[in-house]
Design a protein around this nucleic acid. Sequence first.
DNA 1: CTACTAGTTAGAGTTAACTCTAAGTCAACT
DNA 2: AGTTGACTTAGAGTTAACTCTAACTAGTAG
Lengths: 118, 118
Amino acid sequence: MNMREFSDKVELSAYTLRYYEKVGLLKHVQRNTSGHRIYSNRDIDWVDFIKRLKDTGMPLKEIQKYASLRELGAQTVKERQELLEKHQENLVKHIRQQNEHLKALDAKINLYKSGEVS
Amino acid sequence: MNMREFSDKVELSAYTLRYYEKVGLLKHVQRNTSGHRIYSNRDIDWVDFIKRLKDTGMPLKEIQKYASLRELGAQTVKERQELLEKHQENLVKHIRQQNEHLKALDAKINLYKSGEVS
DNA sequence: CTACTAGTTAGAGTTAACTCTAAGTCAACT
DNA sequence: AGTTGACTTAGAGTTAACTCTAACTAGTAG
């Protein structure tokens, strides 16, 4: 599929997709005879995974690191797993923290509701 | 308390605290005779609340809006409550989303654990 | 009196992650 | 042949949220 279709599907602008390629998140995207990019379904999966990592707070630099390890094939499986497990741990902490924040916010709102705030 | 003590207590650099003042998050901080800032316990509470909003993804601009409403006193209670309730709603959504991401990440890691990834 | 410490200001610099601009190419229509 | 539209590139510009620099001052210890 072409840029526009892919951009629509993954909900990232063409600018962002080219940027992701520039910083090494997306590698060897195919080209047609006139030099335009052609994306595959595997590209969709990969970008979706990038988005997931990003949405859970992983910086693009670290996603790039994961991408590079992936490039190196089977010998980096362990390292990639560790990277993801570390991220998983951070995410669990983050969710715990956010739940605490939510509780405190609920309490604050209850003060407003009961008219104890001016 | 002075800059250093306050900075230690709220775990924000002096740079950041001055910046927060500059952008209108912190207002009428007291000064001593030589022009140095003096912070109170109420300042601690307020900065802690700012941090909570920030940590839950509220942009400083919106926190600033809340701060400004607070300045205007009792007549803005309703508006402030609404602002917080909107944020609460976003936060609930965010937590839900993060939990979904976590589940997907768990699944991915399980693929690694069972050797289904190369 | 001098040195040191802890602050002060205005404004410049940094970083991440885009986002856009300008100039150009290529294929398809009219 | 000319126009349109969807791309291409290199590189400049933007935004949020800091972070730092330079030059200065006030209070304290030796």
